[in-house]
């Protein structure tokens, strides 16, 4: 056990040393450039938010939400405050949406994921197999 602890502290010390070394050696100038990937992430997030907004505008999706007693505006408000990762998951699930309103199961799946991610699921009665926190 002692030996293991010693080894771990050696590894940690080495890692710390290499981090310090890297930060000294790295040219300071490079650190303040804004990377292309940062802009791409922002671009992607914007596109995904737009895609989610478009999906929420769909008549069949709105109708299905209202059927379950969920106000679409309430969902949009929640979507606006989601993190990048959550928006990404939601945008992925949009790809599963059927092209036209002829597949109720596809829409149901999307709405389930939508309510799950926006955290509305726990507040509603939409899916009876989910227990509710606020009762």
């Amino acid at each position: 056990m002692n030996l293991l602890r010693k080894r771990i502290s050696t590894v940690v010390a080495l890692m710390l040393a290499s981090f310090l070394f890297a930060s000294v050696v790295m040219p300071a100038a490079q650190a303040q450039m804004v990377g292309t990937d940062a802009l791409l992430h922002a671009q992607q997030l914007q596109q995904e938010r737009a895609a989610v907004a478009v999906a929420l505008e769909r008549a069949d999706v709105r109708a299905a939400l209202l059927d379950y007693g969920v106000e679409p505006a309430q969902v949009q408000a929640r979507v606006d405050s989601l993190s990048a990762d959550e928006v990404h998951s939601l945008a992925q699930s949009i790809q599963q949406l059927p092209a036209a309103g002829d597949d109720p199961f596809g829409i149901l799946l999307f709405i389930f994921v939508l309510l799950l991610i926006t955290d509305i699921l726990g507040l509603t009665n939409v899916f009876p197999f989910v227990n509710h926190r606020h009762r």
């Binding site: 799946l109 991610i117 197999f129």
Partner: peptide, 17 residues
């Protein structure tokens, strides 16, 4: 039966994948 928190945590991932 499971609660909404747990559902949110793992079901989302499982379901999506």
């Amino acid at each position: 039966m499971f609660n909404a928190d747990a559902a949110r945590r793992w079901l989302g991932g499982v379901l999506l994948s």
